[in-house]
Design a protein around this nucleic acid. Sequence first.
DNA 1: ACTGAACAGGACCAATTAAGTCCGCTATCC
DNA 2: GGATAGCGGACTTAATTGGTCCTGTTCAGT
Lengths: 143, 143
Amino acid sequence: MIFSRKSDYGLRALMYLSDRRAKGPVTLTEIAERLMIPKAFLSKILQQLAKKGVVRSLKGPSGGFVLAVEPAEITLQEILTEIDGPTRVFECFATESDCTLYGDCLMREVFGEVEDQIGKVLAGYTLADFHLTPRASESPAKA
Amino acid sequence: MIFSRKSDYGLRALMYLSDRRAKGPVTLTEIAERLMIPKAFLSKILQQLAKKGVVRSLKGPSGGFVLAVEPAEITLQEILTEIDGPTRVFECFATESDCTLYGDCLMREVFGEVEDQIGKVLAGYTLADFHLTPRASESPAKA
DNA sequence: ACTGAACAGGACCAATTAAGTCCGCTATCC
DNA sequence: GGATAGCGGACTTAATTGGTCCTGTTCAGT
């Protein structure tokens, strides 16, 4: 699996915050309950995202988390990288000296290409493309 | 990591067999030693590839493994799939009922796209593209 | 100032998967 | 029939992921 459960949780939490970013801070407890994510675990994920500046956390009563970026300004690639770290496609186990490949390592080339393609797809979407709930701003009559 | 160490071992073993497929069966011991792969572990991998018909195994003295396909006829995608199983990019952890996504699941779409792109890259290479050693048939004067 | 709501962060534990080993069995060549 | 080589199942170990717990610290409201 390329993307972990952590990414799934984190991404959904960001969608939740994105949907409610007009309404002030949302508590960890609320997000965890609504999205059915283990609270303590989600706490770690949001802490991590807070350090990276994706969300802002406010302590004390009436505190919680708010999205710190414009949903349309952060790509899926950025989000997943910030949660899971860079997508590693293949790691060469051989050391320089015992790599028996002929000439330039074609493997590196191939897997570099794979990484690029993955990145390209993920960079094509932003948080604004994802919603957990219908947007209040969207005309319901259009259904 | 998308691709496991098992894939690395298996792929390199296939390159080895590809390079020497004119010279008859190669023993597990030879491959393991040359490529510095734990023998018992490589055995499992080659067994697996034998079941899939990628290599053929011959028991008894003067036995060993031979490549059972034309190197140019098997893609990197096929090889990696046969060793590691299909590349799973993302697994939705929510059940149908608790998936809170709005409308059609955009996630599925995105990650399907990612899988397609990975497949496209890997399908563009065959075993014939990879070599552990210089090909004898290739003019050395060209260097 | 005190209280209680809320996040922070380190240490810890559990579950899963990946990686690797062991050993008796079977086929094959000479 | 003995030596050689792969087969295959059970097992162990190591690494990673997923998750918990507990003790802070910050801060709004009184």
